[in-house]
């Protein structure tokens, strides 16, 4: 589903990712770990085409990203759900609007948009907050809105960048349960985190990054 082959990315002559190669199979849940500045976010950005590699080959859902023109990027992104580290919630729009926008962008009709948005709000226990604005929500609630927005279009791939950062253990567990439910439906998930508790004893693949190098591939034990 996701295939990196000798991928390198530099920013102003500083190497962000160096000769990275790995694969994530369809339906797999993989964790990407490493200290801050190790290149986790850059790697995710390469997947959703916010950045292009300087060298190497990236294949997403069977498509070689080097062959995708700028006009084709929206179509690739529509198959990916993203949980951004900085949330990227629209402050002047309600929770409902923040989530439903992911469906509207895909041209889904009004009735279906409403049904699916309320369904996902129920799944993340935020049905009662549908008309609230993001600023009125706690950090955990905001995180769940971002997750709801990422999963509502039922993407093939789900990317999450530090989805439990700044969350208390109970809320983090709730977030992880949501991911597990999505994964159970067959979605390929890549979670970037430096929280070891998330992947400990899961048996899932863990990719370890350090200073832009992939220093290890193991399974969460």
């Amino acid at each position: 589903m996701i295939h990196f082959q000798n991928v390198t990315k530099d920013f102003d002559n500083q190497t962000a990712l160096k000769d990275i190669s790995f694969s994530v199979d369809k339906g797999q849940m993989v964790f990407l770990t490493g200290p801050s500045g190790s290149g986790k976010t850059t790697l995710l950005k390469l997947i959703y085409l916010a950045e292009r590699p300087d060298n190497g080959e990236i294949i997403i859902d069977g498509y070689d990203t080097s062959q995708i023109k700028d006009s084709g990027i929206p179509l690739v992104r529509r198959s990916i759900g993203i949980v951004f580290q900085d949330f990227r919630l629209l402050e002047n729009r309600t929770v409902f609007e923040n989530i439903s926008i992911a469906l509207r962008i895909r041209g889904i009709g009004e009735k279906e948009t409403k049904t699916r948005t309320y369904d996902v709000l129920k799944n993340v226990n935020l049905r009662h907050k549908a008309d609230s604005y993001p600023k009125r929500l706690s950090g955990g609630e905001q995180q769940r809105v971002v997750i709801a927005r990422a999963i509502v279009p039922e993407p093939v791939i789900l990317l999450a960048d530090e989805p439990t950062g700044n969350l208390d253990p109970d809320t983090a567990e709730g977030v992880m349960n949501t991911f597990k439910n999505v994964h159970a439906k067959g979605t390929t998930i890549l979670i970037a985190t430096h929280n070891r508790e998330l992947y400990r004893n899961t048996g899932n693949k863990v990719l370890r990054l350090d200073s832009g190098n992939l220093i290890g591939e193991e399974f969460g034990r």
């Binding site: 959703y48 916010a50 006009s71 929206p74 179509l75 992104r77 529509r78 990916i80 993203i82 951004f84 990227r88 629209l90 926008i101 992911a102 962008i105 895909r106 927005r149």
Partner: peptide
């Protein structure tokens, strides 16, 4: 900012 988010979520130029 809003437009940037729309783009990241898969919005086309037309949208």
């Amino acid at each position: 900012e809003e437009i940037e988010t729309f783009k990241l979520l898969g919005a086309t130029k037309g949208f």
